[in-house]
Amino acid sequence: MHDMSSYIRIKFYVLCMMAVLVLSACAATELEERCFPILTSVGFEDRKVTYALGFPREGLAGEESKNSKTNVSRVKAKNFKESKTKYESRLNKVVDYNHLKVIVLEEDFMEQVKIYEEMIDYLAELEEFPRNTYVCAVEDVEDLLEIEKDLPQELGTYLEEYLNKQENAKGDILTLGDLMDEKENKKMVLYIPYLEVEDSYVEWEGYYAVGMGLPPVKFQ
C-alpha cells in the first residue's frame, strides 16, 4: 500500500513538472530569432550619438551570416539609450548581447563627458552587455570599420585577439565591468586602450585615462 501510494505520488509530480516545463518553453525566443553581435561602435557626429553593431561572419550553424557587415545603417540619436533602441528596432531579430566582445568608443564621444557618463550608468542599470566586454577608443569609428574587409576575421574577433596579444606588454585590458565599478567607486585611474588605424591594421598608440570622478583625458 505504501509502495503504491509512493508510486502514484511520483507519477503525479512528474506529470505536473512535465506540463509546466512544456508550457514555460512557449515564451522563449528561439535561436533563429536572435542575432548575436560581437562588436558595438559608439560615435559622435553632428551633435548626435551614433550606434552600430558588428556581427560574426559565420552564423551559429557555421553558415554565412546575413548580418556580417558592421557598417549597415549606423543610426544617430540624442543619446546612447535612444540610438541603441533605434538601431535595435531596425533589425529583424532580437539582439542578444551575451556574445559581445568589444565596445569601440570614438574620441569625439569620449570628449562628451556627460553623455559618456550617462552611457556607463545606463549600461550598469540595463545589465545586458557582459561585464567582461573589452573597451577601446579610436579617433574615427568609420576608419576602423573600413578596414574590416581586409582583416582575416570579423572586426570584433580581430580586436579581441589583438588586445589579448598585447596584454603581456601593455597590462590588463580594460573591461566594461571595470568602467562601471570605477564610476561608482571613484578610487582608481583606468586606462582605455587608444587604437590608431594604419595601413589596414590597428596599432595601440596610447590611452584614455578615466576614473576618480574626472573627465576622460587622452595621452600617447
Binding site: Y13, C16, M17, V20, L21, L23, S24, A27, A28, T29
Partner: peptide, 13 residues
C-alpha cells in the same frame, strides 16, 4: 523570458 509564477510553481512543487 519565462514567467515568474511558472518558475516559482516548479520550485515549490
Amino acid at each position: 523570458e519565462s514567467k515568474f509564477w511558472i518558475i516559482l510553481f516548479v520550485i515549490v512543487l
